[in-house]
C-alpha cells in the first residue's frame, strides 16, 4: 500500500512570479510600497542578482526601465492601479523611443472594492494605458499569473513591446473596509 501523500506546502504565485522574473534575467525591480506586491518587494530586497529600487513616485520607474534598457538590462515596475495615473506622460518616453517596458499592476477600484476613492483611477487604468501604447493583459486567477507573465515577457523582450499585466482584485482579494 502506498503511504498517504503528505501535502506539499502550497507555492504562492507571488514567489513563482519572482522566480520567473529572475530566471529570465530581470535585474532591476522598482516599486512603490504596496500590499499586493509585498512578497515580490521583500524578495527583491534580498536577492543579490537584483537591484531593488524604491521609488518616490511611479513615473520614476518608467524612466528607470529606459535607462536599464540602454545599459543592456531588464527592468520591471511594480505598482498599484493608482500609480498608473502618475506614469502617463513618462510613457511617451517608452512609446516614442520604443523601449521595452513591463509593469505588474495590482488592481484596486474594481471587484468588491469598498473604498470609493479607488474607483476613478482603477476604472481608468486600462483605457489610459492603452491610450499610451501599453498592451494590457489581465490575470484573474492564481493559475493565470505565470502563463500571463511568461507571455508578457516574450512580448516585451522579444518583440520590444510595452506591456502591463493587471493583477485583478478578484485574484488579490478585496481589502476589507
Amino acid at each position: 500500500m502506498n503511504a498517504p501523500k503528505t501535502a506539499e506546502p502550497p507555492v504562492c504565485w507571488q514567489d513563482s512570479l519572482f522566480e520567473l522574473l529572475v530566471e529570465n534575467g530581470v535585474t532591476q525591480i522598482s516599486h512603490v510600497p504596496d500590499a499586493g506586491h509585498s512578497i515580490l518587494i521583500e524578495r527583491a530586497a534580498n536577492e543579490p542578482r537584483v537591484h531593488s529600487v524604491g521609488l518616490a513616485s511611479e513615473q520614476e520607474g518608467v524612466a528607470l526601465a529606459a535607462g536599464a534598457d540602454l545599459g543592456g538590462e531588464k527592468a520591471v515596475l511594480l505598482m498599484q492601479s493608482s500609480g498608473v495615473g502618475n506614469c502617463i506622460n513618462m510613457l511617451s518616453l517608452m512609446k516614442g523611443s520604443r523601449f521595452p517596458f513591463l509593469t505588474f499592476v495590482t488592481m484596486r477600484g474594481e471587484y468588491g472594492e469598498g473604498n470609493p476613492w479607488q474607483y476613478p483611477m482603477g476604472q481608468a487604468v486600462q483605457p489610459v494605458l492603452e491610450a499610451m501604447g501599453v498592451i494590457c493583459l489581465r490575470a484573474e486567477r492564481p493559475e493565470d499569473v505565470i502563463p500571463t507573465a511568461g507571455a508578457a515577457m516574450t512580448m516585451v523582450w522579444k518583440s520590444e513591446q510595452r506591456v502591463a499585466v493587471l493583477l485583478a482584485q478578484k485574484l488579490l482579494g478585496a481589502k476589507k473596509f
Partner: peptide, 21 residues
C-alpha cells in the same frame, strides 16, 4: 541619449543606466 520630451525623466534614466553599467 537626450530627451526631447518626457520632462522629469533624465535622472532616473541615468540611475537605470548606472546600475546596469
Amino acid at each position: 541619449y537626450g530627451l526631447g520630451g518626457a520632462m522629469g525623466g533624465a535622472c532616473m534614466i541615468g540611475l537605470g543606466l548606472a546600475l546596469a553599467r
